[in-house]
Design a protein around this nucleic acid. Structure first.
Lengths: 360, 360
DNA sequence: CTGAAAGCGCTTACAG
DNA sequence: CTGAAAGCGCTTACAG
């Protein structure tokens, strides 16, 4: 049979077979009985302890025959190290490519150690963040990697005391002392602004996320610092926080460019903001006049005309370092909390190199 | 202190505090002792069983004082239902936005039920897929959502028999009968090709992923079906599988367009292929002549000139349906396996509407 | 090297 | 309603 796009509702459910009923999963006890040995011996074989080769073979045969697989959570209960070989990741949104790239970085390091990852979205809600952390903790994770929603993370103290290691990523912790891995947000923003200044611009617009967010505040700080460094007075009219002002980024960009004494260049300090701003620039037909650098790389940035210059973060590296810090702690590394700062990189594609045309 | 982008290596590690040593996590036994009641009573309070209000208060106070939290994995061990309230997702790559969007869809449904998600990448390697499934299974997940790497998934039979529910997503299972949720790949491809034919094109190039992949094969099938339907003979020279031929998509696109008797329109059947092809079209300066429809939506597709027309999938819906099927099974829903087909949607942005210019 | 016993943190019959 | 006992699947001392 064939199905055609749009012709069937999403509930086009079709029966294609039948299923078997669940059976009890074989346990060590079952293996012991079949092999005619004690539970302890089976446990030794499974864990590579000293056991007579002949007996070991009998046990392995029995295990194979029954399809035995060890229950990891049960084994953890009595184990000396009590490690579950799992960690929990608390992101803002698992479907945000920035966070899924961090996840990838964490996974690449963790898989070498057989460590599995729980992942969930806080949706920037501290309450949900806490629920997730608690739920992961109740399932016995060895550690937590958290992109904090903001506010107070001291509730994690209990987990830390219970031996759960903590690493913060993308944003540093508040009211709790813990390892953290962040991008060089202020440095990256400075670099973007310096690049625009080098092209002759002095009126540089800023479009950013809500300034309560750590990364947004840092990028604004970098913007201001760089203006100051070049003796340029900040014009508050050029600094916009669309999400905070309840207006779309698209609209804010239009207002900025159509207003009196508009900027000759703009710095958009987040990936989604960059995308909307590019759309607005193109719709106004100003994409070849107004210079533009974005923070965070975006797909197709090199295909748009002009290409969108960006300061790129390295989210996979954020994930790598977060996982390495966490695993080091799990290995017993002690000592004060550490902060890792991951550098950002300027990618020139055209939009950021547009020179200042008029008199300066 | 300040940090500047690029000035510090990735190992710019800075000490910022000190840490406490791990303490044993309080157990029900501790709570019972402090409250002066039996373990059973504490368990009843925690689980909402019948208990004298006065006693219950004492228990709750003790629990609060100690910072007690129930160990979910230990409780699961003896529980009648034996549900861990966790599921495992086995993706091709967690950092692929398509899969992270499916993850989001699963999470939105699962969180309503307090179900947590393990997530891992198989990297299209059947061996890794199996290791992940085994590891999740050993940690007691209630179910598995799998984007199969290909080959034989019958190894999951043991898990199914042990009561672990299975749902396949994006691609149907092989050699095992299970629920599955897929996009209407063939229908979407047909729709794309029909759209190009409607604009007057008859020589339509195809750029696709390795034809061993289910989704790639389905989209090729849709392409062919639609050509046939309109009485157009397929020209094998117009069908390219860059990954399979060991050439970059960018190069394959160039060859296609610079060859003898080139296509007047192209259909790119995957998001990354679409992005590379758009780049090649632009670099050749042919983006306003050669019509183009892609499968899967991409960021900035509306900003490029012309906008990139696509047949979009709905990955969040894939995730929603996968989770719903799984939860229904966990609720005891019996009966034959089900297959859900999610429709695709044509988004016209310009590139797919470019008319055939020359004589046909 | 092997097995019987105790125990991990919790839930579930079973008596009272 | 309450508590003592047994048990979930496994590991870890403890004797032999």
């Amino acid at each position: 049979m064939e199905t055609f796009a749009g012709m069937d509702g999403p509930d086009d459910v079709e029966a294609v077979g039948r299923r078997a009923r669940a059976v009890r999963r074989p346990t060590m006890k079952d293996v012991a009985a079949l092999a005619g040995v004690s539970l302890s011996t089976v446990s030794r074989v499974v864990n590579g302890g000293p056991v007579d080769p002949g007996l070991a073979d009998r046990v392995r045969d029995a295990a194979r025959l029954l399809g035995y697989r060890r229950d990891h959570t049960a084994s953890m209960l009595r184990r000396a190290d009590r490690q579950s070989a799992s960690i929990g990741l608390v992101w803002e949104d698992v479907s945000n490519p920035f966070f899924s790239a961090i996840h990838r970085g964490v996974e690449e390091v963790a898989r070498e150690r057989g460590v599995l990852t729980f992942v969930g979205s806080s949706d920037e809600d501290p309450e949900r963040e806490r629920m997730l952390a608690d739920a992961f903790s109740a399932r016995g994770v060895d550690g937590l990697v958290i992109a904090p929603a903001g506010g107070d993370e001291s509730y994690l103290t209990r987990d830390r005391e219970a031996g759960i290691e903590l690493v913060f990523v993308d944003r540093p912790p508040h009211l709790i002392d813990a390892d953290a891995v962040v991008s060089d947000n202020a440095g990256g923003a400075s670099m973007a602004v310096a690049h625009l200044i080098a092209a002759g611009h002095r009126r540089i617009g800023f479009l950013g996320d809500r300034p309560e967010l750590y990364t947004a505040a840092e990028r604004l700080r970098g913007y201001r610092r760089e203006l100051t460094r070049h003796g340029i007075d900040e014009d508050p009219a050029l600094v916009r926080h669309p999400h905070h002002e309840g207006v779309s980024t698209y609209e804010a960009t239009r207002e900025l460019l159509l207003g009196p004494d508009p900027p000759t260049a703009i710095f958009t300090s987040q990936n989604l903001i960059t995308i909307s701003a590019v759309g607005a620039l193109h719709d106004l037909g100003r994409q070849h006049e107004v210079a533009h650098v974005g923070f965070d790389d975006v797909e197709l940035a090199g295909v748009v005309d002009p290409g969108v210059s960006v300061v790129a973060q390295d989210p996979v590296a954020l994930g790598h370092h977060a996982a390495e810090l966490l695993l080091a702690r799990l290995d017993g590394q002690d000592g004060p909390s550490r902060r890792v700062v991951i550098p950002t990189k300027l990618i020139e594609r055209g939009s950021g190199e547009l020179p200042h045309a008029g008199p300066s």
